[in-house]
């Protein structure tokens, strides 16, 4: 029988992030109707209230590491805390959410506990009880998907955001068993050489990819190219795009070619940085809808909207590889004109 440990951390507001509930949902799929041993481990500053939020998840035990040093995300202290939890529970399977904090520390944890690790898990097939557990993830930047299993334990499965149904259930009081990785003096100097000074906003302000938005607006290189009058209209393009983002409450993604222009000192869209890039060397965000404008290209660039459910495109070329066979609708039109009109309709 597997022993499952779900590792979670609280965010800066003291709550469990949304993806923590998804990881919990994934773990519940592994339980074969509740037969597996199932423990929760949470790290952070004050974790009591967060533990209560998942009190009804059916875990057989709740463990926690609470310490002021864990109020911040830091490899050394996080690793010590997680290592202590694993030592306590001795799990065979560990499920954890793919947050930036855990993405940094869990590989090190795998080494430290002599375990295995797979990240970006998009689905888990628990099989019948006693059968091998299979997991799926993408390789080569979302170009191909593999289904695989491992014999060795412990096995850490780090699940991707948006891939699993979040656990929804009752809150409840839990008997949180505290574990301390450190002696009374707290973490030693060897794990606190790093001091976290805080969170800063990225250069392009709020206009980066926001996973919570329903709509992803993808701006392609065509926005910065010469238009029908033989001139570029970059300031106008920027105004239209920003107006649209505001009106549609959309997240902004961009093709690689447009972002590259930004870093090469050409007349560029100042609202864009590499943080906006989707596709082969950018992110592959999950959104309900995606609207691509002035995009031009084929695989591999199109992987950028592999996980976008409903896709439409505005492009002057009906055969554009970005759209053909990839979008639900392609509007053959000038994106400058369409977005200007759209902004009117959206009340910008």
């Amino acid at each position: 029988m597997e022993t499952i440990l779900v590792l979670l951390h609280i965010d800066e507001s003291g709550n469990l992030p949304r993806i923590a509930f998804e990881a919990l949902g994934a773990a519940c799929e592994l339980r074969h109707g509740g037969n597996a041993n199932f423990a929760i481990g949470i790290i952070g500053g004050d974790i009591e209230s967060a533990a209560g939020k998942i009190g009804g998840c059916g875990a057989t035990s709740f463990f926690g590491v609470s310490h002021p040093a864990l109020e911040v995300s830091r490899y050394g202290t996080d690793l010590a805390a997680l290592g202590a939890l694993v030592e306590k529970v001795a799990p065979t399977l560990i499920v954890a959410p793919s947050t930036s904090r855990f993405a940094r520390v869990l590989p090190g944890l795998a080494v430290r506990i002599g375990g295995q690790i797979d990240t970006h898990i998009t689905s888990i097939d628990p099989g019948a009880e006693g059968d091998a557990v299979f997991a799926e993830r993408w390789y080569y930047r979302q170009r191909m998907k593999a289904k695989f299993t491992r014999d060795a334990r412990p096995w850490i499965l780090v699940v991707d955001g948006g891939a699993f149904e979040p656990w929804k259930g009752e809150t409840g009081s839990v008997a949180l068993q505290m574990v301390s990785p450190w002696a009374e003096g707290g973490p030693g100097d060897n794990v606190t050489r790093t001091q976290v000074s805080g969170i800063e906003t990225g250069e392009s302000g709020t206009q980066t990819i926001r996973p919570d938005a329903d709509l992803l607006f993808v701006a392609g290189a065509g926005w910065a190219k010469k238009q029908a009058d033989g001139q570029t209209h970059v300031p106008k393009a920027e105004k239209l795009i920003l107006g649209f983002l505001e009106g549609a409450k959309a997240s902004l993604g961009s093709s690689k070619s447009l972002v590259d222009q930004s870093s090469e000192g050409q007349a560029v869209l100042t609202c864009l940085s590499h943080l906006n890039q989707v596709g082969q060397t950018g992110t592959t965000p999950r959104h309900q809808k995606g609207l691509a404008t002035c995009c031009h290209g084929e695989e591999p660039h199109v992987v950028g909207w592999r996980f976008v459910q409903e896709r439409r495109a505005v492009n002057l070329d009906a055969n554009c590889g970005w759209a053909r066979g990839k979008a639900d609708v392609v509007y053959v039109a000038d994106a400058f004109e369409v977005v200007e009109k759209l902004n009117d309709l959206l009340g910008v």
């Binding site: 031009h296 290209g297 055969n319 554009c320 590889g321 053909r324």
Partner: peptide, 10 residues
């Protein structure tokens, strides 16, 4: 059989 630009890119 595809557009010239698709042949270029693909």
């Amino acid at each position: 059989l595809m557009s010239h630009q698709d042949a270029l890119l693909r």
